[in-house]
Amino acid sequence: MSITYLEAIREAQAHALRDDPRVFIYGQDIGAFGGAFKATKNLAKEFPGRVIDAPISEDAMVGLAVGAAIEGMRPIIEMQFADFSTVGFNQIVNQAATLFWRTQVPCPITVRLPFGGTSGSGPFHSQSLETIYAHYPGLVVLTPATVEDAYSMLLEAVAIDDPVIFCEHKYLYYHLKAEKLPSEALPVGKARIAREGRDMTIVAYSAMVHEALEAAAELVPEGWEIEVVDLRSVKPLDTDTVMASVARTGRLLCVGEAWPWGGVTAEVIARVASEGFGLLDVPPQRLNAKDTPVPYHPNLWTAHRPTAHAVAAAARKLLRL
């Protein structure tokens, strides 16, 4: 028996609904229909009145979640696509993210963002928005890369007393499988060494972890041993684990699927350069998507985002420095 990344998300929600009467899910098409990606399949039937269809009103969806959280509930909001969360952006960054700091009343909401590119999805169903949410104080931003993390981190997200932006990668929904759900997990806020190596550190998160791992495998016949760090959570960012890895390898490449200006890869490089400059043997590099909207056609799409080959090429360049 195997379980996909998407099924893990569904199972985590079922688990949360079962264990905690304060949990409910609110989003578009998530009730009887089971969600655009079926992440809530059968949950409305299993948990009557707690998996609720919302109108196409992302602003009001998040606003409702904040109000419910004030009343002690633990709402999960499903955005149909991360791209549409921009309509609810104001409620996320100005309402949810400021509530605790302003009033000492915590705001335990989880906003699920199905994000990232898949072939043919185009400019408005492919965006990676972790950076823009991580920029705001008051939010926790999670980017699970594995089936196990999708499950355990979503459960932890619901339990956290603060607003969590849960970035679940659509490309991983069906592509990624595990044998079973985990019984224990690293806590949120800790990065993971996805692959040990000695010659270079590649820091990645979400789907890019898998491109980085494939690139590392591609470089083995050439004699290189690449270490891959999976950030797991981009906010908080586990600088210690990254720094320890760079201390071992002396070389750093950061890979992200988001746009290049600012962002997670820039943040990692800024931290390593300012706090660990002496650990670096060569200038750190980063690889991101191109600075255009996400294209529709597969030829353009595969060139727009970092792929394993592109990561390997960037790594080779860095290894020769």
Partner: peptide, 22 residues
Amino acid sequence: MVSHLGAMISVVNGMLFARRMK
């Protein structure tokens, strides 16, 4: 209130929604 007009209404909705659930 936050300064963004209209944004408090759905928060009130959420409190009423949660109370009904409870």
